[in-house]
């Protein structure tokens, strides 16, 4: 419940960002990205107002790094925005080796159940491959697909579908599995 509520709030925030400047990290948001690029030593609570202040916290990962990326209809290719977010995830994961992660792949409701399961797996795998290519140990990562079984936005319009076509990197305590 609380996770879902958070996820919905976060999504709402992301969609506002997308509306105002055409990209989650365009414009003013770029400052956050620059801070993130400095990694552990550059980040501090004061630089990211309104979010979890401890850069080593999962909450910081969720809210400031960004725990999810979005996909185009029926696609599993990573957009430039997605790569940007994932680069932040790589830095965070490398700075916080005591965490492992499950990458969850999801699809919107506009597809058949089996295909969407397979599509969600493709999306989760695209994220995992990217994280591994950038230096995260594969032993710390695994994937799961939920297909269209776990939407976070429930309207039957593109605004909701866009939020549901996602891969979410969910942290877990422990350095490997």
């Amino acid at each position: 419940m609380t996770y879902l509520a958070k996820a919905i709030l976060l999504c709402a925030a992301l969609s506002v960002a997308a509306c105002t400047n055409g990209g989650r990290f365009g414009g003013g948001n770029g400052a956050d990205g620059a801070n993130g690029a400095n990694g552990g030593y550059g980040a501090n609570g004061g630089m990211v107002p309104g979010s979890a202040s401890d850069p080593a916290s999962p909450l910081y990962f969720q809210q400031s790094v960004g725990d999810r990326i979005l996909f185009l209809v029926d696609q599993s290719t990573l957009t430039d925005e997605a790569r940007f977010t994932l680069d932040g995830q790589v830095r965070w994961l490398n700075s916080n080796p005591d965490y492992s992660a499950v990458v969850e792949g999801h699809a919107d409701e506009q597809g058949t159940r089996e295909y969407n399961l397979a599509l969600g797996a493709r999306r989760a795998n695209a994220v995992m491959e990217y994280l591994v290519a950038k230096g995260v140990s594969p032993a710390r990562l695994r994937t799961i697909s939920y297909g269209k079984e776990r939407p976070i936005a429930i309207c039957s319009e593109e605004s909701c579908y866009a939020k549901n076509r996602r891969a979410v990197t969910v942290l877990a305590a422990g350095s490997g599995m």
């Binding site: 089996e114 989760a124 491959e129 994937t143």
Partner: peptide, 26 residues
Amino acid sequence: GDMSFSPRFSPDGQTVVYSVTQGGNT
């Protein structure tokens, strides 16, 4: 495989045909 799904019986009930996803490929 990372997951297996979409099973169905053969007409003689001896065999299952299904999908396996491994490394994102099904």
